[in-house]
Design a binder for these strands. Structure first.
Length: 812
RNA sequence: GCCCAGGUGGCGGAAUUGGUAGACGCGAUAGACUCAAAAUCUAUUGAUGGCAACAUCAUGAGAGUUCGAUUCUCUCCCUGGGCACCA
């Protein structure tokens, strides 16, 4: 008997797969005729090659998609399961700053480590399509996409207040600021005015929102994206400021209660504020108020909700919505300048407005009341803010008296519009994407500043604009990229007038390269185009994309935006990049704490591959818990899957020619495993296989046919051991190229079924019945069962419930 | 505050449309093998009571619907994640 030697087996098959090119996806561009075979495109988020090496979390998500890919291959699909490196980014640059080692070298070392580690796990990646975002041949096309965005007016420069991290010396997108602090280093973010490149993602907000209806994403992912885009339909009220004659628009997303509005609030930084108070007695106190407020806001622990501040401007809105009333305009600290119009009318039906009015003694006028009369009295007495209740009854305007708030909404909006008081308006929370970074390790933005011609795009034929070598990667305190110091690189001739000009020194954020990488995989070696249309037509969209929840609102939204843009340019054939999106849970350290270097609880996959083997590691990570939930690592539990594989290995010595085994068990197992893989319930798929192996392990001998079927369904999970056993059984072809065993439902039929007899819902007996036995006969047998009679004797039987093939419940 | 997940043995976790709660795995206990240990194999393993057959209680707490609830409804508590001055 040979022992299960995982080291030998795993190395052997990894070499063999590579030699045979088992996992290469066939491209239509490489053949003359049509590629008839159906494709399946499985995608994982390509890793950022950090210096720490691969995390066990990578293995979890990669294995999941690997199992699905391997199953699809066995089902006859031409599977594309690619891999690459999202290698631009701050950690590498910060490392370079610290050590002086060039980021190119750092990246090469790290990707080498990752590649070796990934290969040691036996993932069925098509390595021939490997991409790297830092490769000029790759980022040539990232820059090309930027030029197209520029051409269409979707990339623009804007002088604006940006979130500035004083430590990283970098501008941050709103999305990258967490609790007012830099997402990466935790430093308190400052506001700084700077010229920035922006991408107009808001122009696509509507489509990004609506098209979610047509994709198969996990519901929670859709909800997060919808919340992030934050679409709301409301009314822009058209008003005039009394005595000034200025027209203002005020956005209101709940116009149903517009009659309740008794005052108006404006954001402190709103550009209209100085005009409102200019030359009045309010000017001095208002400006002082704003100055003080800004100082307060800079404080980290400042809570605008609790520390609500405000001041009257001395101005009024004139004749609000035809009511003849004038609404006092207050500056309020809780109003956001860049949402809607930054000026809002306020009412008793909003908690913040309500609290504000109470604090500053502004009159309130509720117009919507609950059905309960006691509560109505409370609302009438202004005891609390009665907010957004679809069943609340409106008292005003009189045209809508007695109608429900939720139901009346549409009609009230029409009413307002018809009277000319305002226009329908859709607003989004989503803001444009701050696209420039004052950093070295990113794609140079391919633009030239000419003194005469202004901003001139680099001609497409001159792409890529390559990163020059620098000595120092430290950003400058002036906020410019280190590239600004390379005069040789910066000074160029203007492509239009040939006069002296300077290159743009800002680079792109790391989200750029990852916004379109899945397209490049379709044709990663193409030097003439982003990818051959033939290949894009065939491979895209991605059929199944798995990744982390943390990328739902940034990467996933950005890449959908770019994809839609490329669709408009007719570069890609579909309007959505991913048909299906799922997500995995995190792997936590032992005891449920976060895995981190500082806690010293990081698990090194290399050690486990060495001692237990890649197959055991794969099995363990799939078995440890539900795929979409976080699970704590437990080194003790690793032994379970390893024991299972050893048992499977030893089963080979039980094979006997001509031996038959109940078809029922193997067919049932195949069916369950297949269903569980599709539902990403890998943990129960494995337990099903364990049960099967335990069962046949008890027999004296097993048939080769059954064992082979079992190896096939095991192979996506533990491919190395499955290949080895497959070969031992005398097969020449790789098991990866075999076909997935079809389970025959008709075979899954039992002669006898065990059912339970309950008395008043409590199990009292078990009986065996024939599969086709009549209900009356079954009931009769249940009722006359000895154990059951003990409980029913002398009692009146009220009812007997029979659930076919399940149970009998006798009610007494 | 809002949104989304969750809460089941010593631990990770199973339970089709409501239908035998605790599958599978880890750990633990006992036994076999061994000079011994490891590995392996066999048995037991939710709690309480009982020599046992068996009984009772158990899925965060409390109520409800039902012949029957881990599953459905309501109220509350706790944990994790996301969002948050968005009118």
């Amino acid at each position: 008997m040979r022992e299960y030697d995982h080291k030998k087996i795993e190395k052997k098959w990894q070499k063999e797969w590579e030699k045979q090119g088992v996992f290469h996806a066939e491209s239509p561009s490489l053949r003359s005729g049509r590629l008839e075979r159906k494709k399946f495109y499985a995608l994982i988020e390509f890793p950022y090659p950090s210096g720490a090496g691969m995390h066990v979390g990578h293995i979890r998500s990669n294995t999941a998609m690997d199992i699905i890919s391997r199953k699809r291959r066995m089902e006859g699909y031409n599977v594309l399961y690619p891999i690459g490196w999202d290698a631009f980014g701050l950690p590498t640059e910060n490392y370079a700053i610290k050590t002086g080692i060039h980021p190119i070298k750092v990246t090469k070392d790290n990707t080498d480590t990752f590649r070796r580690q990934l290969k040691s796990i036996g993932f069925s990646f098509d390595w021939s399509r490997e991409v790297n975002t830092t490769d000029p041949k790759y980022y040539k096309w990232t820059q090309w996409i930027f030029l197209q965005l520029l051409k269409k007016g979707l990339a623009y420069k804007a002088k604006m207040f940006i979130n500035w991290c004083p430590k990283d010396k970098i501008g941050l997108a709103n999305e990258e600021v967490v609790d007012g602090c830099c997402e990466r280093c935790g430093t308190l973010v400052e506001k700084r005015e700077k010229e920035q490149w922006m991408l107009a993602i808001t122009k696509y907000a509507d489509r990004l929102y609506k098209d979610l209806d047509d994709v198969d994403y996990l519901e929670k992912i859709k909800i997060q994206q919808r919340n992030w885009i934050g679409r709301s339909e409301g009314v822009n009220f058209k008003c005039k400021v009394k005595d000034l004659g200025i027209a203002v628009e005020m956005y209101n997303s709940v116009p149903q209660t517009f009659h309740a509005e008794t005052f108006t609030v404006i954001a402190p930084e709103h550009k209209l504020v100085p005009t409102l108070v200019a030359g009045t007695k309010y000017e001095k106190p208002v400006l002082e108020f704003i100055k003080k407020l800004n100082q307060k806001r800079a404080r980290k622990d400042f809570d605008a909700e609790k520390e609500m501040e405000g001041i009257f401007t001395g101005r009024y809105v004139e004749n609000f919505a035809g009511s003849g009333r004038g609404l006092p305009i207050w500056i309020a600290s809780y109003v956001v300048a860049d949402y809607g119009t930054g000026i809002v009318n306020a009412s008793a039906h909003d908690t913040r407005d309500f609290d504000f009015a109470k604090k500053f003694n502004i009159p309130l006028h509720p117009v919507m009341f609950p059905k309960d009369p006691i509560e109505t009295e409370k609302v009438r007495n202004k005891e609390y803010a009665y907010v957004k209740d679809p069943h609340g009854i409106l008292a005003e305007p009189l045209e809508f008296k007695g109608r429900e708030w939720g139901e009346a909404r549409k009609d009230i909006i029409d009413f307002i519009v018809k009277n000319g008081w305002g226009d329908k308006k859709v607003n989004y929370k989503l803001r444009d994407w701050v696209f420039s970074r004052q950093r070295y390790w990113g794609e140079p933005i391919p633009v030239i500043n000419c003194q005469k011609c202004g901003l001139v795009p680099v001609p497409e034929k001159d792409l890529p604009v390559e990163l020059p070598k620098v000595k120092n990667y430290q950003p400058t305190d002036s906020g410019e990229s280190p590239l600004a110091n390379i005069t040789k690189w910066v000074n160029v001739k203007c492509p239009q007038c040939k006069g002296p000009a300077k290159r743009e020194t800002d680079t792109m954020p790391n989200w750029a390269g990852s916004s379109w990488y899945y397209l490049r995989y379709a044709d990663s070696k193409n030097n003439k185009e982003l990818a051959a249309p033939k290949n894009l037509e065939y491979f895209t969209p991605v059929d199944w994309y798995n990744g982390g929840m943390e990328h739902t609102t940034l990467h996933l939204l950005y890449s959908r935006f770019w994809h839609k843009f490329l669709y408009d340019l007719k570069v890609v054939p579909t309007s959505e990049p991913y048909i299906k999106r799922t997500s995995h849970g995190m792997i936590l350290g032992e005891g449920g704490v976060k895995m981190s270097k500082s806690l010293g609880n990081v698990i090194n996959p290399d050690d486990i591959v060495k001692t237990y083997g890649a197959d055991t590691l794969r099995m363990y990570e799939m078995f440890m818990g539900p795929f979409d939930q976080s699970v704590a690592w437990s080194s003790d539990s690793m032994i379970g899957p390893r024991r299972f594989l050893e048992r499977v290995w030893n089963l080979q010595y039980k094979i006997q020619k001509g031996k038959k085994y109940s078809e029922f068990e193997i067919e049932k197992t195949i069916k369950k495993v297949a269903e569980d893989i599709e539902a990403m319930k890998f943990n129960t798929a494995i337990s099903t296989m364990m049960i099967f192996a335990n069962e046949i392990g008890k027999l004296d001998s097993i048939s080769q046919e059954v064992y082979e079927k079992f190896l096939k369904i095991l192979s996506p999970f533990a491919p190395h051991i499955a290949e080895e056993l497959w070969q031992i059984l005398g097969h020449k072809k790789s098991i990866s190229l075999e076909s997935w065993p079809a389970h025959d439902i008709s075979k899954i039929k039992q002669e006898e079924i065990k059912i339970v007899v309950q008395v008043n819902g409590k199990v009292r007996a078990e009986i065996m019945i024939g599969a086709d036995e009549k209900e009356e006969d079954v009931q009769h047998r249940g009722l006359n069962n000895e154990a059951v009679l003990k409980y029913t004797a002398g009692k009146e039987i009220k009812k007997v419930v029979y659930v076919k093939g399940r149970l009998i419940n006798i009610v007494i």
